[in-house]
Design a protein around this nucleic acid. Structure first.
Lengths: 231, 231
DNA sequence: TACACGATCATAGTCACACTGTCAAGAGTT
DNA sequence: AACTCTTGACAGTGTGACTATGATCGTGTA
């Protein structure tokens, strides 16, 4: 196990340097010379490993994205309850973005709006993970946790859109040094959405809400019976 | 009024051409020569009006953004109720993005992640409008429409993040010809969020929700009184 | 030690494109 | 006609991605 200390190949050195510089100055404003200098190699070596500057850009998120999302996919099935699963998936995203600011800057600011990136293995991994989230929401609708008429695509966009929006603003605000408090917003976010889409029936042990207009009718029912609620 | 038919200045022609080409191929992949040819002017004329290619990019959303958001700001105060106000603001965004696909592609895909764009009048207008939305949410919290412990920043990110996410995916999907159904998702979106943050108390005239545990006590009250709800 | 071979470097060169500068050709005005 | 302002044509510069080539370094092998 001691030989697991990787000696950092030149390829890794180049990608590490590129990640820093791309995240800091943006893809277009970064030069190959700058990256090769930072990595301590020559320009030619960069082209030895990566055909073009854009190939280098696309290669960077590949390792981390695949590793993370494959790990996520393995864990999720063992979590019981769709709400817990959804929470776990979103926590994965938030922690990934939060603990790798350069990575998230790259993905959210440079890659997400690049059409060629969409034909990349890294993006396939992202898409797959996004699909897992969608399936969880569908499962929640199917098993009665969420309202039958919920739009799963909308709900997914609410989750992913909100989280990405928060991170984009964090990056654009110009202070990615300070740890963001986005993880603390996960539970409030979940609470709002779940509260909004949760089926309001008395089949699970959750809190039950009734419209006031129905309260009159309910009052009579409650009077006749002892107070037991049978569906 | 007949002389209101603008003869389309060269500046406008250039910006129109640039909008099309930037939206289609992206800022970096578009060349000045291409734009000037499309506009029917020479390269030099482009530089006559716009110092740099980026200045041209930033100039494009200026008119439409300012016009739209200033119009929005004038209308909002006349709408009663924070929920209506919020709905109106979001509808403004959606209709703006939906009826100007090129504009929304430019803003959402190219400009939002550009740091220099943030120091631009166009972005100031966007920020101002975003602040109006935040104020509405705060107003809703203050007047008891929404829960006291709602995080207005989070709620705003939920609205804007979701809408932007939906539009970005619409653009990236590669079929911006077909009219998107995003406007139809506004009410479901509002329903979920409002449902999640609405104060469940009996202080405003809106629909009222009660916890089931309270229904027993309510039943007695309703029996004694005729049914009128005085606060 | 000597050799071979692959990896890396240094360097020079090509090409595309943003941007500049110059000057001449219209168009409008006096 | 003279004057001015706008526009176009075009040549030129600088930067940076990418290519091509030969030198050099490091390592394993005879």
């Amino acid at each position: 196990m001691a030989d697991k200390i990787k000696p950092k190949t030149r390829k890794d050195l180049i990608m590490d340097a590129a990640l820093c510089i791309f995240a800091e100055k943006g893809f277009q404003n970064a030069t190959i010379t700058e990256i090769s200098k930072e990595a301590g190699v020559s320009d030619a070596t960069v082209y030895e490993y990566f055909g073009t500057k854009e190939d280098l850009l696309f290669a960077i998120p590949e390792r981390i994205t695949k590793d993370t999302f494959e790990a996520s996919a393995k864990v999720i099935p063992y979590i019981k309850g769709v709400e817990g699963k959804i929470r776990a998936i979103l926590l994965f995203y938030i922690q990934l973005y939060q603990s790798n600011p350069n990575y998230s800057a790259l993905v959210l600011l440079q890659l997400m709006s690049n059409k060629r990136f969409r034909q990349t293995p890294a993006h396939t991994a992202i898409r797959k993970s996004s699909h897992v989230l969608l399936d969880c929401i569908r499962e929640g609708i199917a098993d009665g946790t969420f309202k039958k008429d919920s739009n799963p695509y909308l709900v997914r966009s609410m989750f992913m859109g909100t989280i990405e929006h928060l991170f984009i603003h964090w990056h654009m605000q110009g202070m990615p040094k300070r740890k963001p408090s986005i993880a603390e917003l996960l539970d409030p976010l979940l609470e709002i959405v779940f509260d909004g889409i949760r089926a309001k029936k008395a089949d699970s042990g959750t809190t039950l809400y009734l419209k006031l207009e129905d309260a009159g009718a309910l009052a009579k029912i409650l009077q006749k019976k002892g107070g037991g609620t049978t569906s």
